[in-house]
Design a protein around this nucleic acid. Structure first.
Lengths: 329, 329
DNA sequence: TTGTAAGCGTTATCAA
DNA sequence: TTGATAACGCTTACAA
């Protein structure tokens, strides 16, 4: 296979010169730049990323650290969007990404995890689905060994950015819409997991709305489980005017429970997953563009790798109702 | 970070000796082996995979080449299973995997694609969702530059293995069960895409069943599209006794169409995706364990990389009916 | 502006 | 059975 050496020889310049052209270094004459590029094109040279990674302290790989929620399979949809959004953007930015699941690193100490990542030349980590329980990850983020971008976790630092929709606002919006449309007073709110960052943020939204409208709100943790949401609804749904859920999956569980109970209560969800279109009943929900969020996370990672400071990025959300007719392709 | 050099110094041996211990070379005394391993443990040394990849001609990365079907989002579920099955097994076998989407390499010539993979030190490629139209991929497979494992494509060679369920048998089985249970004679078969390998194989199963039971079968291509299956069913469903579909998504489209037409016809699908549990009506379908298939594909890749010849691996399938109550977690 | 050469952390080939 | 040492293909001081 053609290497930088071949290009250098063919163009009649030094290897370092080719490297400089390829990496857009200053102080290369327009003339040699053109000559080198011509040879690169002609020989079809593609730089070996592995060698570049090994050699350079700047270039490195970024890991997508994903929490596969085995409890709720429908979450596949979200993770897949995360992965594809990230990979596409990474290719655009010429970043090398690898996908890693939480299960592969859980139970590791900070040291072990650090060595694991370093041994793979990983310079940056994008973390999806982190919860407060993930203490080691927390240390990893604060440790500055790696650049980190966290999704949905409200933490920023010199080497850490955060990308997320405005969870509180979104929860507030979708609940308000549903409550207003149906003139509700007594609300059953099914929250996520006790240790979840998003759970807190969404809860904020509900609490604000409660104050504002003087609602009566019963809060229960559904742990993002469809089954638990179902059971909670079976237990408390009858005496409430509506059910506000912190995820679509839970909304589906709640809705199915209500149907089984043969009573109608408006239900709203959160996420905007396609599955919502298959339930029969339309519900309000918050659509998050997971691919766009992930794509943006990769952009932020690039900036961090370039030495910029961490920032907080808020992505837009929209309120939707998912209809079968609109989802089907 | 601690490198092989540090280990060598600490253990009082040469770097090459450490390397030999790490890679289980013969001709290393048990004594030094123990001494080296002790130091490795104590220092928490983890070999740098990037350096190893660059240096060695044996070790390399394997790419998961996945066709993201943007037309049918529910397919996310399948792809996600493929990815996670592969990544888990790869970690077990200490293989470095990266995920690549068809869209990133489409329109490349064989040369371009080859260089693209080589530049990333990719030695093996596992291909998911390949169709007959993918001519360049076909060349890539036959070209022997890389080891390849294809999922659901009936092709094996010196450097190519194939992993798949017995598509014809599975289609035969599920259709027969459905037809027998409902005493059908006139069957509407909604096939996949014209250029799909699985489409052909499944068609074989139906044809065999047709001969065997003397059925009257109308075949239409639904292109794995829920919408197209819906339309086909709206058009031909009334005069048939049942609808056999080559995918769950199409089965769902067909079933929803029948519900809208207010007539009942048994429908069966193929794949066993979770979505089937959300449709309301139960249907027979073939469950494929995508994670296991993918996991096995990685094992086969390892063998190919070790110099073994390509083989054909047939994975088991089972007939199931997916109920909401059983799917929900 | 260009070229020389020393790494990067391994593996692999030979000598010893 | 071990140890030097040359690759692997690139980046990056530093020298010219």
């Amino acid at each position: 296979m053609v290497s930088i050496k071949d290009v250098a020889k063919e163009a009649g310049v030094a290897i370092s010169t080719v490297s400089k052209v390829l990496n857009n270094y200053p102080n290369v004459s327009e003339d040699t730049k053109l000559r080198v590029m011509e040879v690169v094109k002609r020989l079809g040279f593609v730089p070996n990323t592995v060698a570049a990674t090994l050699s350079s302290k700047n270039s490195g790989r970024v890991a997508l650290l994903i929490k596969l929620n085995v409890e709720t399979q429908a979450i596949d949809e979200i993770d897949m969007q995360y992965i594809s959004g990230a990979i596409s953007k990474a290719r655009e930015l010429q970043l090398d990404v690898i996908t890693i699941f939480f299960s592969m690193v859980e139970n590791m100490t900070l040291d072990e995890m650090t060595r694991y990542f370093v041994s793979q030349s990983i310079k940056g980590i994008i973390i999806y689905g982190m919860s407060k329980e993930d203490k080691v990850l927390r240390q990893l983020i604060e440790n500055d060994t790696f650049k980190t971008v966290v999704i949905d976790v409200p933490y920023i630092g010199a080497t850490t950015s955060c990308v997320s929709v405005n969870q509180a606002k979104a929860q507030y919006d979708v609940a308000k819409k549903t409550i207003k449309e149906n003139n509700c007073r007594k609300v059953l709110y099914i929250a996520g997991t006790r240790d979840g960052y998003v759970t807190d943020a969404r809860l904020e939204g509900i609490k604000q709305l409660k104050e504002e409208l003087g609602l009566q709100v019963l809060i229960r943790n559904g742990n993002f489980s469809e089954l638990q949401a179902r059971n909670i609804t079976l237990k408390y749904g009858k005496n409430k005017d509506c059910v506000v859920c912190a995820s679509d999956l839970m909304a589906i569980g709640a809705m199915k429970a209500l149907i089984d109970m043969d009573i109608f209560r408006p239900v709203c969800g959160f996420d905007g997953i396609v599955l919502m279109g298959y339930v029969g009943k339309q519900m309000n929900t918050v659509r998050q563009n997971f691919a766009a969020i992930s794509s943006r996370a990769v952009e932020e990672m690039q900036k961090l790798l370039d030495g910029e400071e961490g920032i907080r990025v808020t992505m837009p959300h929209e309120l939707v109702r998912l209809k079968y007719e609109e989802i089907i392709r």
